[in-house]
Design a binder for these strands. Structure first.
Lengths: 154, 154
DNA sequence: ATCAAATCCGAGTAAATTACTCGGGATTGA
DNA sequence: TCAATCCCGAGTAATTTACTCGGATTTGAT
């Protein structure tokens, strides 16, 4: 019932990336890793997932890097976490995957299905309602309040 | 980000137990395991956790078993899952554990804290609002609709 | 008193998952 | 041509999960 480092590091990385967009054309893995103190090679994997999900685009070669594929206000935390962690459902019972109800032979087992659905729905609702740009703004606010670490020196 | 078998089996087991209260004095591990098709020795461990959390009481010796420690309408799914899974928080950053904010040296890292809090809060709210007796009632309803498996033959 | 049925308890273990590292290839700007 | 960067898959140590097992203790019934 824990979010893995993929989700945690990845969200931080994407906030970092989004925060740098004004100042930098593209943002390199190296610079994000340095600021966020995440292993470069591991972060590379995570960003790959974000790219595969269509959240970032890349520029290869020297001076290459990543940028957001769309405006930060159109990217939800749900999009990001799903890209990194896969399905966010806390429980996936067979009946939930295809809603034919097949796979649940015994209806008795499925009283719990209601519970799992409630939990999954509340998580989904929450993460879908938080947009990346809110976090970027909050990030800027925090930084302007004296904390200088994490600045965008690419 | 998945609920483990502890939480899933344990909730099912407790619904089963609660459903049997009318008919049986105490309910044995063996009978729950049989109805729910869960390994007896594994289930034993889970019920131990529920007991430690004060959700069930036990009667030792021959003809022994378990019963709810309090009425089903006073036991929430949150109580049950927390007993089985430990803390349900999807992310526990140091600053959340003691809310002194210590452990988070860099405020920049903590923009994500807001996100984790929202997720954790929504999970907590959801599981705390579902009470065991609702599930027992739903269970009875399903059973009366023809499904005979899972009946309480202790 | 004995026995069987049950709860209790801790240790051990195989399988799965996580959290990475590593080596090398491909692309691009200077 | 070179260095910086993205791209990609394979491998691996550590951790967690999902159990099993052996045995001790309690208790009701014969």
């Amino acid at each position: 019932m824990k979010l893995s480092t993929k989700g945690r590091y990845g969200l931080r990385a994407l906030i970092d990336l989004a925060s740098c967009e004004d100042e930098c054309e593209v943002v390199s893995i190296q610079s994000i890793a340095e600021r966020q103190k995440i292993s470069e090679s591991y972060l590379e994997q995570l960003v790959r997932l974000l790219k595969k999900a269509g959240l970032v685009t890349s520029q290869r070669g020297a001076c290459g890097g990543y940028r957001l594929a769309k405006p930060a206000e159109q990217i939800s935390v749900g999009d990001i976490l799903r890209a990194l962690e896969g399905n966010l459902d806390a429980v996936t019972c067979p009946a939930n995957q295809d809603d034919s109800g097949a796979g649940c032979q015994d209806a008795d087992f499925c009283v719990t299905r209601y519970v799992w659905k409630q939990i999954n729905d509340s998580i989904t609702l929450t993460v879908n309602s938080i947009m990346l740009d809110q976090l970027v703004q909050e990030n800027r606010k925090l930084r302007s309040q004296g904390k200088s670490t994490g600045n965008c020196v690419n």
